[in-house]
Design a protein around this nucleic acid. Sequence first.
DNA 1: TAAAATCGAAACGTATGCGAAATAATATGA
DNA 2: TCATATTATTTCGCATACGTTTCGATTTTA
Lengths: 126, 126
Amino acid sequence: MGIDLNEFQALDLWHRAIVSSVQIDAPDLSARQMALLLSVYLNPPPHTVRGLSQFLKVSKPAITRAINRLSEFGMVRRKIDDNDRRSVLIQRTVKGSVFLREFGELIVNAGNQENQADPSSLPPKY
Amino acid sequence: MGIDLNEFQALDLWHRAIVSSVQIDAPDLSARQMALLLSVYLNPPPHTVRGLSQFLKVSKPAITRAINRLSEFGMVRRKIDDNDRRSVLIQRTVKGSVFLREFGELIVNAGNQENQADPSSLPPKY
DNA sequence: TAAAATCGAAACGTATGCGAAATAATATGA
DNA sequence: TCATATTATTTCGCATACGTTTCGATTTTA
């Protein structure tokens, strides 16, 4: 019970969505940052630096930096774990929810476009 | 004749695919870089700096830098336009095709996963 | 042919990101 | 207690990216 896509449909969907995101000047997140953000929102809490580091197979300092960046955008928030004050819990925010909801709409809209089977039949975009 | 997705399915698909990409240590491209790469491969040629700049609504120097980066990865190639030697044509490469084909597989596989309607019912990943 | 326009790249100062190693704070265990 | 382990962050030197401006090459226009 998944989403049946062939390879061209998959890339075409990704293309339309990410182009829309760039065109509207959304924050230019790297793949790592986007993976982290989505993990915080779609995987069940709690989220810690070490946990995200292991899940994404990325070093802990890299996770810390990605959280710094996303925090500046207000998309996640740090909260010290009262049960283990060495740990930091990464939490969701309203701004992050709004951003991801809008990003999801972009993908949905990208999927709603008429899809050509043959990319060379697409009209020039410029 | 599109791809019917609801918002959660869309974000979940994006999440699974981009997490896979990060986990296998694929090049950590920014949204801009990925949008440029996909545009070169999925929009019909010819591709020029100014054309891509207008299409993506991003400054020309930013396009130049993204092409530099993707060129270092061997994913695109520059070719001077013989009809107007001021212009540079951005062309596809074998390495870029391979990368996007593999990335497409990642998305297809992400779509093939069993999808839960309720994200809180997902098992912990770590 | 000379002047203006166009194109992509380079230069500039600043901001962000990297991995590796070191550090501070906290918890655990002998 | 007090040495050890764990957790997240900071620091280091270096690489990459930003927008603005400038530049050199080329084409178009007057």
